[in-house]
């Protein structure tokens, strides 16, 4: 983003002819800042790389055994992991511009809110990916001996695709804002992204002792190959509640980023953070202990 864009948005007062109420003025500033941050995000090389990667892989036909159910790793990696580093960089550069401006006329929380709203761009791409995945599933459903199998509900399938794909495309960039606000040092965001990838791979359900607790992670698998070729398994838990848990995590990320501004730490933010934290604990527990009770292996015993 050009410095002029930020300073213009930050310094341009509302029209002087008809003084607007403070709330309306704040809304107008937020809208303009969000537009600027959206443009900055859309031009960021990491977003462009991620979008191109996603589009390239989306063009591939669905798999015979699993249809599109193992494709959400693409938006998760290309929009989530890359988005984490992208928004950390955008947040840091916005902060540098704020500091160089001296007394910025826009509070930090407004800028954070604008950055968070800009994350709707990768989320929109993730939702488009989700739509394509559902369409691909209907066009070429998995083979009966493939994944998913048995009588799992449609909401189970859509929650899996939405949580692993679209929610990861939103959660990664939001986490990047938190990192950019709290740890704006060189190298922190890429290294945390690497750590996140490593932990997520460990917790993707491939190790039996971790199958139940794997749902605490922002990305995990809900099934996978089971030893011999042609054998698949469905892992325990409820992807529907997991999506609700991810929504809470995204909310907590926004609260965590806003918390950096001492002026934003009012009673409402405090209450929102407590409510989100409580909801996250409850939904995570529900994702862990409801839904599929035991690991199912294909072929199911008749």
């Amino acid at each position: 983003m050009r410095a002029a864009d930020v300073t213009a948005a930050a310094a341009t007062p509302p029209p002087a002819a008809a003084p607007a109420p403070p709330v309306a003025a704040a809304g107008s500033v937020l809208r303009r800042l969000t537009g600027l941050e959206l443009r900055r995000y859309a031009r960021h090389p990491l977003f462009l790389i991620g979008a191109v990667l996603s589009a390239a892989v989306a063009a591939a036909p669905p798999d015979h055994d699993t249809s599109t159910f193992f494709n959400p790793i693409v938006p998760a990696a290309a929009l989530g992991v890359l988005g984490l580093v992208a928004t950390a960089s955008l947040t840091r550069s916005a902060q540098v511009l704020r500091e160089s401006a001296g007394a910025a006329p826009v509070p930090e929380r407004t800028q954070t809110a604008a950055l968070a709203l800009a994350c709707l761009l990768p989320f929109a791409v993730g939702v488009a990916w989700f739509g394509l995945s559902v369409w691909g599933y209907h066009r070429q459903p998995p083979a009966p001996e493939g994944f998913p199998f048995g009588d799992v509900s449609s909401s189970w399938k859509w929650a899996l695709l939405f949580g692993e794909g679209a929610m990861a495309a939103l959660g990664g960039p939001l986490l990047g804002i938190v990192i950019g606000r709290w740890w704006p040092r060189r190298g922190v965001a890429p290294m945390l992204a690497v750590l996140l990838v490593a932990v997520v791979i460990v917790m993707q359900g491939l190790f039996d002792p971790l199958i139940r607790v794997r749902v605490v992670m922002p990305f995990t698998y809900w099934g996978g190959p089971h030893g011999d070729p042609g054998h698949w398994r469905i892992l325990t838990g409820s992807p529907q509640w997991w999506v609700a848990y991810l929504v809470c995590l995204c909310g907590l990320a926004v609260v965590g980023a806003l918390w950096h501004d001492p002026g934003a730490r009012g009673r409402r933010l405090y209450a929102a953070s407590l409510a989100l934290l409580l909801a996250a604990v409850v939904t995570c527990g529900l994702a862990m202990f409801t839904g599929v009770g035991n690991v199912l292996t294909n072929p199911l015993p008749s």
Partner: peptide, 15 residues
């Protein structure tokens, strides 16, 4: 900032 996450994404996706 580009090469680290891009490598991770390429290694995960293997396009």
């Amino acid at each position: 900032s580009v090469i680290i996450p891009a490598s991770a994404a390429l290694a995960l996706i293997r396009p």
